[in-house]
Amino acid sequence: MVDKLLEVKNLRVELQTKDGVVPVIDDLSFDLDYGESLSFVGESGCGKSMTALALMGLLPEKVGRIASGSIKFEGRQLANASSEDLRKIRGNEISMIFQEPMTSLNPVLSVGEQISEVLRLHQKMSVNSAWKRAEDLLDAVNIPDPKRRVHDYPFQMSGGQRQRVMIAMALACEPKILIADEPTTALDVTVQAQIFGLLKDLQTKTGTSIILITHDMGAVAQMARKMIVMYAGRPCEIGEVAQVIKTPQHPYTTGLISCVPHLDDAIIDANNRLSEIPGIVPSLREFGSNKCLFASRCKHQMEQCRAERPVLAQFSNKQAFACWKREIIDAG
């Protein structure tokens, strides 16, 4: 049997806090194929970024750890790999771009140095050929005049350009997986569209798989084929993007989708208020308790929701959700 590109099974990540050990990722399973794109969606603090850090082996030292479960990358177990093995995979076979392009590049090194450094490290390229390749990469991410700009420092570039440099850096070694953690949150809307366009372009060219972490439903619809909705460290709905957006099953997913304003709504009904999900995310202390963590904010809550954690159950062949209310909930 051919190994999957990435296979995550029953992953549990725990953080050490003042109030004790908290499971910030609680029983997460998913897999990713070559060239596929997957999206994690959810509010702040739902465990999206922690998932990315766990995959990269970059959980905060001494505070976070993978408590159980497995992360298999092309058959190799990453969950308890040595830091040296993980280091060789990071930036090479799995790489990552971050939310803050303004601060994610080293201010005192030229962008050429920051890109070619990865190539020298992982591909054992010479100084000259790595530099040449850095120029090509800047060209590939549509930075004009790459031969000159490669000598620039980050402070000489705009936010969008810096994020392009981050992308060039992340794709330098042609990784099999690119993790993009809210790559456009800090950028304005027109630049967002450009960055997503660029990512899609590069994906078709290089065949890399993308894991997109976002809270922006629009970005998900544009970028990903599969999506996982996370709430309080738990997956609450998994499925094909088109299907989930059309027929969301979990009340939280329904809520998230109805929060997105529609252009025609506003025209038809001027008084139509933007909907929101009432309440707030539960505190870390409640994480891991045996109940539905969304129950307190859910209009469909029942006795059972507060007594037992709902299991993730298959709904149709490609959609699964974790809710006790099994019959189809109509969107209203």
Binding site: I89, R90, S95, F98, T103, E117, V118, L121, M166
Partner: peptide, 14 residues
């Protein structure tokens, strides 16, 4: 604790 140090780690630098 800055972002670019995290980036450097994410690049797989020793």
């Amino acid at each position: 604790g800055t972002d670019f140090v995290r980036t450097a780690r994410a690049k797989g630098l020793p």
